[in-house]
């Protein structure tokens, strides 16, 4: 149980290119915060700095308002699930999980009980006597998870702990992580590049790009109100319109056309965006706001819906429709953009 504050972290491996720049975030007591970002954006680097395995060039890590920069790693009482699992190859599953408890000088009896309990949660009970080399990737990942949570750490750091599990187990394990985390009230930082996973279990999500947090907010915030092009793209927005100028309070000129947005905002947007499934496609002109003429270029099946590419005066639009019978390639169509769902982006 602790509150973690990251303050202005900066790091460069080669003293030339910044891997992290001015990274700040606060994780409240008992919260689960996800760091979401593409490969190579600096997620692992950030976790390693928080754990103390890497010294930042600038910035501080505070736990309950104490700077822990000088606290050695082994005294921090953190838990960490490594991306590469990092299991002890010479120890059995049981001894791997028991290691942290031994370091905390628990009695043999207590260790037995706790390890048993956590092995049950992680479905590893009948593998307890195996060595890591005798386990599948997913099983190793679960051992690494068990080893980190069994010590009930002050702060739990998880680096893509579910990446190697199949879809079903992945959902099961993330529910388990969430329930353990909430039951024990462990402050947790969870790294992933799977947005569904992170939305499902996080209190807050920090979207990371090129060593910076683009946006920090609740999953709903990130999903419905992305603030930047990058975040919008990452959470499934596909249609982006570069704003040429503001015409009226809520009207912007895009490609010599006018788009109206009813999304409440106080900043001057650089782009407007809308999800493919929030654009309406119809055959006849309805004379609505944000209605444009276009032509079907092609379509493809996404599973559950069809994605149409429509050439319009706004540019090429991606539109999702539930059935494909209505329109064919080269059909003339009208698209209308729900003005409530046109999101203005800051950058």
């Amino acid at each position: 149980m602790a509150e973690v504050t990251i303050k202005n972290l900066e790091l460069s491996y080669d003293k030339k290119h910044d891997v992290l720049s001015d990274l700040s975030m606060k994780v409240k007591n008992g919260e689960l915060v996800s760091i979401l970002g593409p490969s190579g954006c600096g997620k692992t680097t950030t976790l390693r700095i928080i754990a103390g395995l890497l010294k930042p060039d600038h910035g501080n890590i505070l736990v309950d308002n104490h700077d822990i920069g000088r606290t050695p790693v082994y005294k921090r009482d953190f838990g960490m699930v490594f991306q590469s699992y990092a299991l002890f190859p010479h120890l059995t599953v049981f001894s791997n999980v028991a290691f942290g408890l031994k370091m905390r000088h628990l009695s043999r009896h207590e260790i037995q009980n706790k390890v048993k309990q956590v092995l049950e949660i992680t479905n590893l009970t009948n593998l307890a006597k195996r060595f890591p080399s005798e386990l599948s990737g997913g099983q190793q990942q679960r051992v690494s998870l068990a080893r980190a949570i069994v010590v009930n750490p002050r702060v739990l750091l998880m680096d893509e702990p579910l990446s190697n599990l199949d879809a079903k187990l992945r959902v099961e394990m993330r529910e388990d992580i969430r329930s353990i985390q909430q039951k024990l009230h462990i402050t947790t930082i969870f790294v992933t590049h799977d947005q569904q996973e992170c939305f499902a279990i996080s209190d807050h999500v920090a979207v990371m790009n090129h060593g910076k947090f683009e946006q920090i907010g609740t999953p709903q915030d990130i999903y419905y109100h992305p603030q930047t092009l990058f975040v919008a793209h990452f959470v499934g927005y596909e249609n982006f319109f570069k704003v040429e100028k503001q015409i009226e309070n809520n009207e912007y000129q895009v490609n010599h056309q006018v788009i109206h947005t009813d999304f409440d905002h106080s900043y001057e947007p650089k782009y407007l965006t809308i999800r493919p499934n929030e654009i309406d496609l119809h055959q006849h002109k309805n004379n609505q706001m944000n209605e444009f003429n276009g032509k079907v270029v092609n379509f493809s099946f996404l599973g559950g819906s069809y994605r149409y590419m429509i050439q319009t005066d706004l540019g090429l639009l991606q539109v999702d429709q539930n059935d494909k019978d209505k329109f064919d390639v080269n059909d003339s169509v009208y698209v209308s953009l729900n003005s409530q769902l046109v999101i203005p982006l800051l950058k």
Binding site: Y74, K75, M80
Partner: peptide, 18 residues
Amino acid sequence: LNIEVEEAATVLGAHPST
């Protein structure tokens, strides 16, 4: 040797000599 294995031990509370 995988250095992360040693780091894992350290994070779990092992003194460098341990």
